[in-house]
Design a binder for these strands. Structure first.
Lengths: 358, 358
DNA sequence: GTGAAAGCGCTAACAA
DNA sequence: TTGTTAGCGCTTTCAC
């Protein structure tokens, strides 16, 4: 290693043309797998490419193409801080992406309404869009509309909650089963050896992410902490009001519940309930997604841990993957893996996390 | 919002030239803040830029410049899995970065030897390098050599352990005080209300990161868990053998130590000690940096939590910042913030995290 | 089937 | 102090 030596001047299309004894245009045809080149010529060009170790300069290619990327984020229209964070990241990123000839926008679709989402996807103009990132449930209608869009050459990312059956280009989000397991491990360790009951607040049985979290949670609770009973879920549909209404009954008698796993959105409802009915002994609470509200609850000691995924990373990753799909260029899987973040009040990121630019 | 409308054809340098009634060259001079333009002309151009909402196309600019970036990572030469991970990330990234006309290399310097590091920095050829990322201690000699390099126009990043006094361009790494606090919080919660003593293994008093972790750890232990006594540190110099040698004495009588915070490198020494002297009651162990070894210990239940920072993120972030510094382009602070990751065995990333490409 | 030439948006000699 | 011009690496008409 040592101090870098002089750059060895990467080979260009001109070099290929020279070595393969063809014109630039032909090299380009081969590079882009366009028809109208004799097989023998194609091979000569490939030969030269291999020989020179050529790698295409995507930036120059896009410049010449005048290509622009148009990406759309399809998000549920719901009172939901985390979705708001994502929308905010999209618009924050949009400015910086202009210089990369990339345009990103958001569209909200009625929440918990698979048909509305399917319709919205169906209504998309595949000729005016190179990629779409979708956060929605995995129902047949959604799945089919995505498959159709995909067949029209639009890259489709399932965001936060996977829709594997749709044949989407990629999934961008955490491993929700692992997230559930993590929540269980923390819950068990924080609660210690005393017996008790744990309440799970979930969102919707339609939502794959919620289902998976519950799955992972139950698995680890049953295996590692059998002295803790996990109650049947409160299905809160990410709705704070609904959650606040359901909780009084779900919490049962005073002291019955020693832990709460808020595995879906709607933390406001939980916090409201706790404020109105302060328990004698504070339960261990583990919630999802770092938002202004959950951050405050964590700081105040009401929440004990928050499991989260980075909204900025989510958006950037989706954009990178959609772009790579358009360019047919490779992606760095490790970079695109969304981590299951654990936040305690000690490792909260600075509140100014929203300040951008240098 | 809604489906994106037709791209409005971004303004180019030609448009600016036309509107400002100057030549392309003048526009370029203004854009790049080069001298030799009358103030009045500068203003006319700025006027036009503002009017048109121009944003420069970085890709085109770099293409024209034919600019290449040469970055160097200066890492300690020590038997240290985490440093190896970083070196590996550098070489993995190097391949993909070639298409971005960016060259990154590594150089190892004797560990815990400030003079050697200062000499290495001093020996760098500032004309053959646009940026350097350095992981090393904050001593006067190091600080001065960095300041000198910086003055020669080389971007300098302090990596993992900050060197603020050097005037480095930026620091890339976690907030080590927060990391120490986080470790303490986990330690306290995992140990529960019983009294006991906690051992801290640190690296070197020269290393700012180690110092900061210790600081944060002590703070939270004293404040939130006064029933747990924190022992004076074992100074292991990141050396497994040394640590294994020091531990028998440091652990004291059987059962005296109920928790261990391995705040620096050299986990192999700790694990070796535990294997040779299996304690009756397994202590709660919190270690740093996710490596093959610590991952295995976590999976096996020997470690209870690992606090880490993503080596890939570290390297990519350093490169992005060095490049932004060269281009004088803005950076996204939120994206560059390195998170203090908490790993339990439940949220470990897939082992194949090293597999790259698509 | 193949090639010559113009041009994407920007920069950098070299003139004037 | 300012302008002309020739590229950077790649794509894309439009001829041959």
């Amino acid at each position: 290693m040592g101090t870098p030596d002089d750059p060895p001047a990467n080979p260009t299309v001109n070099d290929i043309a020279r070595v393969a004894r063809v014109s630039l245009a032909t090299v380009d045809r081969v590079l882009n797998a366009r028809p109208g080149v004799r097989q023998i010529t194609v091979e000569r060009v490939h030969q030269a490419i291999a020989e020179l170790g050529y790698v295409r300069d995507t930036a120059a290619a896009n410049l010449a193409r005048g290509r622009t990327y148009r990406f759309l984020f399809l998000l549920p229209a719901a009172r939901n801080e985390f979705i708001d964070l994502i929308e905010r990241e999209v618009s924050d990123l949009a400015a910086g992406l202009k210089r990369d000839r990339t345009q990103i926008t958001c569209q909200r679709v009625p929440a918990f309404d698979p048909m509305a989402l399917a319709d919205a996807v169906g209504a998309l103009d595949a000729t005016a869009l190179e990629g779409v990132a979708i956060f929605g449930p995995e129902t047949p209608s959604v799945r089919d509309s995505i498959a159709r869009l995909n067949a029209q050459g639009v890259a489709v990312i399932s965001l936060i909650s996977d829709i594997p059956s749709s044949g989407r280009t990629a999934y961008v989000g955490i491993d929700n089963i692992a997230a559930g397991r993590t929540a269980a491990q923390l819950m068990g360790r924080f609660l210690g050896p005393a017996e008790g009951a744990v309440l799970v607040i979930t969102g919707s049985m339609l939502a794959r992410d919620h289902l998976e979290r519950r799955l992972g949670f139950d698995e680890v609770m049953a295996r590692d902490f059998p002295h803790l009973k996990v109650r049947a879920s409160v299905e809160g549909r990410d709705d704070p009001d609904l959650i606040a209404r359901l909780l009084p009954h779900a919490m049962g008698a005073e002291g019955e519940i020693c832990g709460i796993y808020a595995s879906a959105a709607g933390n406001a409802g939980l916090l409201q309930h706790l404020e109105r009915n302060p328990p004698l002994r504070a339960p261990v609470i583990i919630a999802h997604e770092l938002t202004p509200l959950s951050r405050a609850a964590l700081t105040a000691g009401v929440f004990d841990a928050v499991i989260s995924q980075d909204a900025g990373h989510l958006v950037r990753s989706a954009v990178r993957i959609m772009r790579a799909d358009c360019d047919q260029s490779p992606i760095n899987l490790a970079q695109e893996r969304i981590r299951t973040d654990i936040y305690l009040k000690e490792n909260l990121p600075p509140e100014t996390g929203l300040l951008k630019g240098a």
